[in-house]
Computed example of a mutant assay.
Amino acid sequence: MARSPPLARLLPFPVVDEAWRLALVPALLGAATLPLVPPVGAGLLALALGVLWFHRDPDREPPDADGIVVAPADGTVSVVREEGSRLRVGVFMNVTDVHVNRAPIAGEVREVRHRPGANRPAFSKESDRNEQVAIDFGEYELLVIAGWFARRIHPAVAAGDAVDRGERVGHVSFGSRADVVLPADVDEDDLLVREGDAVRAGETVVAERA
């Protein structure tokens, strides 16, 4: 993992490492343009700061309880449905939400798969066909789905990695959805959320396993 620059200490919030690379170009252009065309320079510097803010990465405290499933992302529950013999819960991440994804349940990563696809709005039904990254934990699967503007999904785990519940497993840039296909022993009566509920990654309990 790349080391964050010294400037990171000046920010009032932590950010993912990728944010610095994305913010670099508007920051440099803004600094160069500010003395010549102040409004344009100020706008570019504001854009750089906005990119950093979008990629903020706050710490979270997962609940200390057995048999629970926590939300994989910040946002609004947009999908609750049966998928074969399993339940699928999806969280839509708006542009103002934190876009760091977390493991809903502790486990070992079996496989990380990338699937190319479309770029429909992440809150639409057609977004199931979008580009996505699947993190397969065996008993459950986490799917990070790109939105119409998102083009960068960054998994932070690989096959063989063991993760704790609520641990960071990656992030995605600029609007998307994170779905968890729950273990087979979780049924509808175990769910604690429904469509429209606001959730926080790693902290909100979305289901209790019997």
Rank of each mutant, 00 (worst) to 15 (best):
H114S: 14
V77Q: 04
G138K: 07
A146I: 02
K125Y: 11
E203W: 04
L29D: 12
R194W: 02
A65P: 07
P26V: 04
V133T: 13
E141Q: 14
L36N: 13
V51A: 09
F13N: 12
F92N: 03
R177N: 10
A184V: 10
E203I: 05
E18I: 06
A23L: 07
E108L: 03
E82W: 05
A106H: 06
P14Y: 03
P26F: 03
A71L: 01
E131M: 03
L192N: 00
I145Q: 00
V181R: 03
V169Q: 04
A103W: 01
L47I: 10
F92R: 02
H154F: 10
G50Y: 08
S176K: 09
D185Y: 08
E18D: 15
I135M: 08
A71W: 00
H55A: 13
A201D: 08
V199S: 02
G84F: 00
P72S: 05
L22T: 11
N101I: 06
V181T: 12
D128S: 13
V80W: 04
V98Q: 12
R115F: 15
R129P: 00
A198K: 13
A201V: 08
T96M: 12
D66Y: 07
V77L: 01
G166C: 13
G67R: 13
R21W: 14
L87V: 03
F149T: 14
V77R: 02
H154I: 09
A46Q: 00
N101G: 12
V133E: 00
F123D: 14
D64P: 05
E208C: 01
V133Y: 00
V89N: 03
E18G: 14
V144M: 13
G160W: 03
N101K: 08
H154V: 14
V109Q: 08
E108C: 06
V100P: 14
R60F: 08
A32G: 15
E195H: 05
V193E: 05
G196C: 06
R151H: 12
D128L: 04
I153N: 08
N119F: 10
V199H: 02
M93H: 01
E82V: 01
A184D: 12
A207P: 09
Q132I: 04
M1V: 12
D197W: 05
V69P: 06
L191C: 04
L34G: 11
W53T: 00
S85V: 03
D164A: 15
R194C: 01
R129Q: 11
A48N: 12
A158M: 10
L45C: 10
I105W: 02
G43C: 09
R21Y: 14
E83S: 07
P12M: 09
S173A: 11
V79G: 04
D187E: 10
G147T: 12
H114F: 14
